[in-house]
Computed example of a mutant assay.
Amino acid sequence: MKLHITNETSKLKSVILGVANSNGPEPKLEDAYDPKSIKHIKEGTYPEEADMIQEMEQVAVILKKHGVEVLRPRIIENYNQIFSRDIGFVIEDKFIRANILPDREKEIKAIDFVLESIPADQKIKLPDNCHVEGGDVMPHGDYILVGTYRGEDYADYITARTNRQAVEELQRLFPHKIVKSFNLRKSNTDPKANALHLDCCFQPVGDKYAIIHRNGFLEEEEYNWLVNLYGQDNVLEIDAQEMFDMNSNIFSISETVVISDDYFTRLNAWLRSKGIQVETVNYREIAKQEGLLRCSTLPLRRA
């Protein structure tokens, strides 16, 4: 397996797309990992497996239409394997295994057939004290952009998934890169005030554009740094409702093609106005688990 990821938008060659088959029963409230899932469990609107399978297959069809190699995890009975982004990520030619929530450890074993095809010196397992999930990590040319939470109460937030030790370890592993971290807003109870990962409040698109939600960032100067990186005219600001709906969690097949939810009418119109082809799917059921298109994809190779 050849690995190559240096940014979020170059032509996609190979990706692991999660699976919703045998997703398991609706979780108990005390077992839910995020406030959005908790909301839907309480309201009796938690997604049905059949609907999520259909939504994910739409994505597989689009990816294959654009010539992308689509790999799927081995199905584990009664286990949620939708969000493949959480279990690992690629930077340059290295696969970094994420240190995810202990209850989700089985997910990495479901892609053993992929990992076995990667040379040993290209696989990295971070030290146990480094907490990180792929939704917080974005290679961006000379930069590695990383969402984190720096509060002393980090351990109190099940929504805090990447710590400062992981940020420091990424800088050690990639000394030729600038690892830029962003202190994200966390809430265990309010899904409109919780940036679960960096890709829940920020997303590069095309060759010079970005989607961003200001209130996802605790530090104003870090938000401003991102806006200045792209230029205000190249940034689409999304509000709290749009962040809740997961507008920043679309997925790029290339600099000129993205997959988006057809529910995102304002976003999709903006993307098309910038010359970007928008392939749309209905991902409303999967969105109920506080994840969308970027969350359910793990890119292995881009051009």
Rank of each mutant, 00 (worst) to 15 (best):
I144C: 12
K28L: 14
V68M: 05
Q165F: 14
N7M: 08
G44V: 01
H176E: 15
Q81R: 00
A20G: 07
I91N: 04
S260D: 09
K177R: 13
Y79R: 11
N215W: 07
N99T: 09
E30S: 11
P204I: 11
V227C: 07
Y209W: 15
V68F: 08
L236A: 07
V257H: 12
G44N: 00
V68L: 04
Y143T: 09
K192V: 07
D233T: 14
E55S: 08
L229M: 14
F95V: 06
L145I: 14
G135Q: 04
H197C: 11
D190G: 01
K109T: 13
S84T: 15
P204W: 10
M52G: 08
F244M: 01
G151I: 10
I238P: 11
K11R: 14
N99V: 11
N188P: 08
Q58W: 10
E116M: 09
K208R: 14
D262C: 14
L198F: 10
F174Q: 02
R161D: 00
A195F: 10
S187K: 06
G18T: 06
G134S: 01
Q241Y: 12
G44P: 00
N228Q: 15
D239K: 03
V70A: 01
A269I: 05
C130M: 06
V15W: 09
V146C: 07
V257F: 02
K11Q: 14
R104D: 06
R85N: 09
A240D: 15
K2C: 00
Y157W: 12
V137P: 00
S37T: 12
S37Q: 04
I75C: 05
T189M: 00
K39E: 15
D86M: 03
E43D: 13
L271W: 10
I53C: 13
L101Y: 12
R185Y: 08
L173W: 04
I211L: 15
D51Y: 12
K208H: 14
V167I: 15
L173T: 02
G275F: 13
I212A: 06
D239Y: 10
K94G: 06
I253L: 15
R301V: 08
L101E: 13
K288T: 07
P102H: 03
Q165E: 15
G44T: 02
N183Y: 14
G67R: 03
E285M: 10
E116H: 09
S273P: 08
N183Q: 07
I76M: 10
D103K: 14
P47F: 02
S187R: 05
Y143N: 13
V179W: 04
V146E: 10
K42C: 04
R161Q: 10
V281N: 04
K180L: 14
L196D: 11
I211K: 01
P191H: 08
C201K: 02
V137Q: 03
Q171I: 05
Y46E: 01
V70S: 03
L226P: 07
W225R: 05
G44F: 00
A210L: 09
S84F: 09
Q232N: 11
S84W: 02
S187I: 08
L17I: 10
A287C: 09
P204S: 05
S296F: 08
R85M: 08
Y154H: 13
A269H: 10
Y46H: 02
N80A: 06
L29V: 11
I259K: 02
H213T: 12
